[in-house]
């Protein structure tokens, strides 16, 4: 694989820069790249967002659908997160059903939203035991420049903030009419740290994503509580490294994301 050979060559350079406390793009270890959120781009979606983080680009759309509730939660609506990593985003992504990377991405983003209890599923019941709203969040990765976890979480949350509930009458959704905004409780952000050699940095660029040995994504809510975590990669973190990330560094790094999410105009 020619591509892998290139990453191996870059690894030495990235590592030697990090040992001098520098990153290839000039950022500090706990600093995010520039990011931008555009709301309400797609008119058929009940809520949508287009997010760029560095050059990573994500299109997120929310569709609301009326479905039968699960037997063990007859009064609750549901949320479903799906992610597509199609070749649009990278020459190394393949077409076809989601592979394990895309499945992990969707499930980690899902947990960051679900465990923070952002969507108020109690308020999404139409007829108990019969009809509830399902909130489908679909994420399309359009350009892969590293750190899909944080970019997709940002896009998913922004799309949810932008979501309106369609009018539902006599068993039918009235297209283009709405009854209010999606009930939300607070928000969460995800921050992903990667380990390269003995160095740990947040918001990995494409190069850093490719040469990292281990990754940890931590979701925190607006109250400063931890909501979900996922470690990835074949490398390891020491107990001290983990402690430092989840008791301190994640909160500092997430500040700019939290500030922007907090100020998003709701529907």
């Amino acid at each position: 694989m020619t591509e892998e050979a290139i990453w191996n060559l870059k690894k030495d350079n990235i590592e030697s820069l990090l040992s001098k406390g520098e990153r290839a793009d000039g950022r500090k270890p706990d600093e995010y790249r520039e990011f931008k959120i555009e709301l309400g781009k797609y008119h058929h979606a009940e809520g949508s967002a287009f997010v760029t983080l560095g050059k990573t680009k994500i299109a997120a759309g929310v569709k609301m659908s009326v479905e039968k509730p699960y037997p063990d939660s007859p009064d609750n609506g549901n949320i479903s997160v799906n992610a597509e990593m199609s070749p649009i985003a990278s020459p190394s992504f393949e077409s076809g059903p989601p592979r394990e990377e895309a499945v992990e991405l969707a499930r980690v983003v899902d947990r960051g939203i679900r465990e923070a209890k952002i969507v108020d599923v109690d308020k999404l019941c139409i007829t108990p035991g019969e009809e509830v709203w399902t909130v489908f969040v679909d994420l399309r990765v359009l350009d892969y420049d590293g750190n899909l976890f944080d970019a997709c979480t940002l896009a998913a949350i922004a799309a949810l903030v932008n979501t309106k509930i369609p009018k539902y009458e006599d068993g039918k959704i009235i297209d283009g009419e709405y009854t209010g905004s999606l009930p939300l409780n607070g928000f969460s952000t995800m921050s992903t740290f990667v380990k390269i050699g003995n160095h740990i940095v947040v918001d990995p660029s494409l190069d850093e994503d490719k040469v990292m040995s281990a990754r940890i994504s931590v979701s925190v809510n607006e109250k400063g509580q931890l909501c979900a975590m996922q470690k990835g990669g074949i490398g390891t973190f020491t107990a001290e490294e983990i402690d430092s990330i989840i008791t301190d560094r994640v909160f500092k790094a997430a500040k700019p994301l939290q500030k922007v999410i907090k100020d998003l105009p709701s529907k």
Partner: peptide, 17 residues
């Protein structure tokens, strides 16, 4: 050529496959 529709591109949520 791969023409695909995002699930949120149409009035009713489209299955991703």
């Amino acid at each position: 050529v791969y023409y695909r529709m995002a699930p949120f591109s149409v009035p009713e949520h489209k299955r991703p496959a």
